[in-house]
Amino acid sequence: KKTSWTEEEDRIIYQAHKRLGNRWAEIAKLLPGRTDNAIKNHWNSTMRRKVEQEGYLQESSK
């Protein structure tokens, strides 16, 4: 079943993607209940745009 993505999950994906790049299977290990494919789709459909537009979460990672 599809549940919506939480801010916490987005944060984990964002940090992991910065470190690992497009290694979705590795990132998926950090998110129980999410598949690598689901994460990749979420990144491509939602997060990548956010990151590019806003420099997503930069201000809170100090």
Rank of each mutant, 00 (worst) to 15 (best):
R49M: 10
L31W: 00
S45N: 08
H42V: 01
E8D: 09
W5H: 00
S60C: 10
E26C: 03
I39Y: 00
L30S: 06
L57P: 13
I12D: 03
S4L: 05
T6I: 02
R34D: 02
L30N: 05
W5N: 02
G21Y: 02
A38V: 06
I12G: 01
R34E: 01
M47E: 06
H42F: 03
Y14K: 09
T3A: 11
T6E: 04
S4E: 04
R34Y: 02
E8F: 09
R11Q: 12
T3F: 09
V51M: 08
E52D: 13
Y56E: 15
K50L: 13
K1T: 09
R48Y: 03
G33F: 05
T3K: 10
D36G: 04
K40G: 05
K1C: 07
K50H: 08
W43T: 01
R49G: 12
D10T: 09
K40C: 08
Q58P: 13
S61E: 15
Q53Y: 06
H17D: 02
N41V: 12
V51T: 13
V51Q: 09
S45L: 13
W43H: 14
N41T: 15
I12P: 01
T3M: 15
G33L: 10
W43R: 01
K1N: 15
K50D: 03
Y56D: 12
K62F: 10
R11F: 11
A38C: 13
T35Y: 03
R48T: 09
N44C: 12
I13C: 04
E52S: 08
T6A: 05
A25N: 11
D10M: 04
E52M: 06
E26N: 03
L57D: 14
N44R: 12
S45D: 15
E7V: 06
K50P: 11
R49Q: 14
D36N: 03
R11M: 10
S61N: 10
E26S: 05
R49A: 14
E7D: 13
E54K: 11
E9T: 01
G21K: 04
Y56A: 14
R11I: 05
W24Q: 01
K62N: 08
I39H: 00
E26Y: 02
I13D: 01
W24I: 00
Y56V: 12
L57Q: 09
G33I: 00
D36R: 02
Q53N: 15
G21T: 02
Y14H: 13
Q58M: 07
W24K: 01
A38Y: 01
E8Q: 14
R49F: 08
K62Q: 15
I12S: 03
T35W: 03
G21C: 03
M47F: 12
G33P: 02
A28C: 09
R34W: 04
E52Q: 09
N44Q: 15
I27G: 01
N37M: 13
L30W: 05
W5P: 03
T3Q: 08
K29W: 02
K50M: 09
S60V: 13
S60Q: 10
G21D: 04
A38N: 09
K1W: 03
A28F: 00
E7L: 14
R49D: 15
I12C: 05
N41E: 14
E26D: 09
P32H: 03
S60Y: 07
G33E: 14
P32L: 04
T3E: 15
R48Q: 14
W5S: 02
N41A: 14
D10C: 00
S61G: 15
I27Q: 02
S45E: 13
N44D: 15
R34H: 14
K50C: 12
S45M: 07
T35L: 04
Y14S: 12
E9S: 01
K50E: 08
W43V: 06
L57G: 10
N37E: 14
R49P: 15
N37A: 13
W43A: 01
T6C: 04
G21M: 03
K50F: 05
R11A: 10
A38I: 13
R34S: 03
G55I: 01
E59L: 08
I12M: 05
R48A: 12
E52A: 12
T35M: 04
N41Q: 10
W24S: 02
W24A: 03
T35A: 09
Q58T: 09
Q58V: 10
N37Q: 12
W24D: 01
W43I: 04
Q58C: 08
Y14G: 06
E54L: 12
A28K: 02
E26G: 02
R49N: 11
K1M: 12
S4D: 10
K40W: 08
I27T: 02
R49S: 12
E9F: 00
K40M: 14
Q53F: 06
